[in-house]
Amino acid sequence: MPIISISQLSKTYTSGFTALRDIDLAIEAGEIFALLGPNGAGKSTLINIVCGIVTPSSGTVLVDGHDIAGDYRAARRAIGLVPQELTTDAFETVLNTVSFSRGLFGLRPDPGHIERILRALSLWDKRDSRLMTLSGGMKRRVLIAKALSHEPRVLFLDEPTAGVDVELRQDMWRLVRELRQQGVTVILTTHYIEEAEEMADRIGVIRRGEIILVEEKAALMRKLGRKQLTLNLQQPITAIPPELADYELALAADGRELVYTYDTRAERTGITGLLTGLAAAGIRFNDLHTEQSSLEDIFVGLVREEGARA
């Protein structure tokens, strides 16, 4: 059974703006799921509905089998949320605010657990510091510590690395992997594609309130990835022979490289024809290599494609 089951979920705000349309989504226990989408696509609305902050217009959400409306206590107890905004109680100390979060979730104080979290997030030395004295990166760590204080089974990270430095980003990725090893399901929204590429097991793409794709990351990249074949020519050329015009080749490195972009999803990649054509044109090469396009390229391609259809 999925740890989160979303069915026919829609949200229209009182302003009339429809943020989500008939979302169906299942998140498996223990996976890292990245929800990608441009700004305003509905990522945060979706998270906020699952966490109880926004009321859905229609549809159902089950968290670990518990309905978020009918059995909200059990559903919410399973969830930890790290919000996008750095919202903290300026005058509170780190230790107090993290302990407060644990109390909100109905758990007895556990100083040992809180200490472990603070140490894992390099916050232990700052435990008595007031939040207003901390840097943005440290505040982000505090929000993560608060979300982990009640030992959630599902962790939502809403734009976790927005505006954080490289060190914290690396720390966060490490932490997410450790959490996964402990069986925690992690759902992150991001528009940093490399974040999803680095961490996610599966990727969902949301655009204008609709899930337009859910796929295993590796399969997605395999299926949707465009590849580039680069041929290192023995002799530089100044122009592409007219008989090879159909291949839309590009010249690079002062005519020493010929670049062919092809779609791995296509029935025929055209590579055989290209190589035959090159031989016929008397163009010889001494090396070649291929490059897989990044997830970012895939994402941009997808969003554009869907945009053109809309």
Binding site: C51, G52, R73, R77, P83, E85, T87, A90, S101, L104
Partner: peptide, 13 residues
């Protein structure tokens, strides 16, 4: 301050 998110997302009546 926006910290109300924590109250709203906690298992509290």
């Amino acid at each position: 301050a926006g910290t109300i998110y924590e109250i709203l997302s906690a298992p509290i009546s």
